[in-house]
Design a protein around this nucleic acid. Structure first.
Lengths: 196, 196
DNA sequence: GTCTATAAGTCGATAGAC
DNA sequence: GTCTATCGACTTATAGAC
């Protein structure tokens, strides 16, 4: 890694780069983004940018790492997983660029050689695990039917969230948060399909 | 459009190109795919390839058009929408490349200027419409609780399908079809959460 | 810490021979 | 129908001045 940033100015610039680069990558995806584009966004030459990060791949990795840290800080302890998921969806409707970053990159990253592949493998494992734990808690406390399969439900809820984001990106009139909340109400409430 | 293909050889080569180009685009996405790469896959020079399609964008549009036609032929009238969805998921587990094409491109295509943007807007509208109709049918015939919101449910089921594909691409041990079938069983069966 | 200059390569597309 | 050759633009990355 370059420019570990012992001095205040360097650190500040590094953060500015990470912030602006996130925006550009969000719009264009990993492959669609050039270092020049990022460099211009932070008023730097392309070579100047590479003083802070040795390669495009390293810059990109740092973006994901930082982003995930702040996400975890913000939502990890927000009560139960389904509530957190709904909250995140509602919040995401204000940051389409960020949503597109994850949609674009997670698809690209299916290739095992992609620089972000391992990141996404671990990310999904982690999220699924968190959700499974939360579902089990609810089952223990009787809030959720105990016949429900926690692993399957975790996978399903994460999938709805991801898929809903794609639909919303392509047609913003879709209400992501409302739809997910609605699904959860169908699953959580005993006798979902009982009435006429 | 170039090379409308009056002669047998031209038509055959055009089809070969569409077929192979689909594979390449599936792996690499629209932006990640070069015409040279496609050309090599069909033993043609890059200029030779452009004899059949005037531009990269035109080639790509044709791929989507052809693909959607054959999909529609195969699954459009397969009983009800949820059953068709499960069948498609099961089938998709045999064609990861194709799954990745749609995941990659649908994310890229969120940009309004993307050559495939309109295609995906129409595609989701069409799929949602089909699903809504199917849900209403089931409600009329009493197979499905009539208090369920058809629009929301359609959006949700399509989202699960899309999101499940992303999870599966990144970690193929996820059983897409089983999970979707499971979700549908939770929604369809009266008293889903009744037992303890 | 930031620059210019440049290497070495890829891209999509066109012109024109055969 | 297919090729070679080429254009102009763009890419990541490096070297070295300041």
């Amino acid at each position: 890694m370059a420019a570990t940033g012992k001095y205040a100015k360097g650190v500040a610039k590094r953060n500015e780069i990470l912030h602006k680069a996130l925006e550009v990558f969000s719009r264009e995806g990993y492959r669609g983004t050039s270092l020049r584009e990022v460099a211009e966004a932070v008023n730097l030459s392309q070579a100047g940018l590479l003083h802070y990060f040795d390669s495009k791949e390293e810059l990109f990795g740092e973006i994901l790492r930082v982003r995930d840290e702040s996400d975890r800080d913000e939502y990890a302890q927000t009560g139960s997983a389904p509530d957190a998921l709904i909250a995140i969806m509602r919040h995401n409707m204000a940051v389409p660029g960020l949503v597109q970053l994850y949609a674009t990159i997670s698809a690209e990253a299916a290739e095992p050689n992609h620089p972000a592949h391992e990141f996404f493998v671990r990310r999904y494992d982690g999220l699924r695990g968190m959700f499974v734990n939360s579902v089990r808690d609810r089952q223990s406390s009787g809030t959720l039917d105990s016949s429900i399969d926690p692993e399957a439900l975790a996978s399903i809820m994460l999938a709805v969230a991801d898929g809903m984001q794609v639909q919303w990106l392509i047609n913003p009139s879709v209400d992501m948060a409302a739809n997910i909340e609605y699904l959860w109400s169908l699953i959580e409430k005993p006798g979902a399909g009982a009435a006429g």
